[in-house]
Amino acid sequence: MNGSVGVNVSAATFATSQVLVLVVLSPLLIGLMRTVRARLEGRVGGGVLQPWRDLRKLLLKEPLQAQGRSWWAMAGPVLLVSSSLALCALTPLLGTVTFPSLPDDLFVVVSILLLGSVALALVGLDAGTAFGGMGSSRHMMISALVEPTVLLSVYALSIPVGSSVLSRIVEARLDDPASVLSPVSLLALLALTIAVVAETGRLPVDNPATHLELTMVHEAMVLESSGRDLAWLEVGSWLRLGVLLGLVSTLLVPWGVATDLTAAGMLVAVLALVAKLAVAATALATVEVALAKVRLFRVPELMAGSFVLAFLAVTASYLVVQG
């Protein structure tokens, strides 16, 4: 009984600290990526703290709502940000201790992610304008095509471990570092990365900095939101990016993640996470500079490619297990 209380306490600690760390870090991450990009393009940029400043401004502004919009305009953003927060709490970015009654099952993680996507898509639809619907439609199409890749790469990662619980997978990787570099793992992670890029609306799938409505995906959905509604939508998306980047980098470089609750371990874990995220964000931003947004109807090709990678990973995992 004591043990289970202890587990619950340490799980709660990890979850809370993950939420706090990511809430603080995610806007900074966006700021970092924008800055890196600006520097590479020869601009000065708004600085790493600019997203935080934007957020403060939005939260203090008066939200405007057009006639005929439903309560969803208000509820959707809240749901999006909540789902992102739940993701932060669930994903083992700092420690692999989880609540016994709430394992960080990958399918649960993915479903909460999708819950956020749906919330966002409905906000776009509720706008009752051409652009809102357009963004929503494109967003959902991409989500639909991403999901096979996500689930299949998750599947590939779970087969060697025999579990779909993320913390088990991370622990297994910590125990057996060689498995990180196995072909199964690399293929699956590559596929997962593409999926993450698509799901979070980065180049080449969507241009987060676009001002041309016809090419928008994410931006088109939030066109009609303002004030704190917009703030929630932005924070929600940033958090998703943070969590997913963190997840991919943790899976790729599992070291630093604590397996039990100690102050030192926690400190190391936080620092490692910051470092991993910074590297990942910088890398992503650097790659993005070199990329142009592809046509919307070329996106399926990209998704098909990632799907094939994931499928190869699964097949490979069977071969490995069999051999």
């Binding site: 405007l64 919009r69 909460i112 819950l115 051409a130 409505e213 009609e224």
Partner: peptide, 30 residues
Amino acid sequence: VGVMVTAVALIAKAAARKVPRREVELAWGG
């Protein structure tokens, strides 16, 4: 999820007391 929603909703409510929502006639509509 409920815990998270409650937390965010509380913050939103606090903000709403300070800066209430305003209804406008027209959507921006691009």
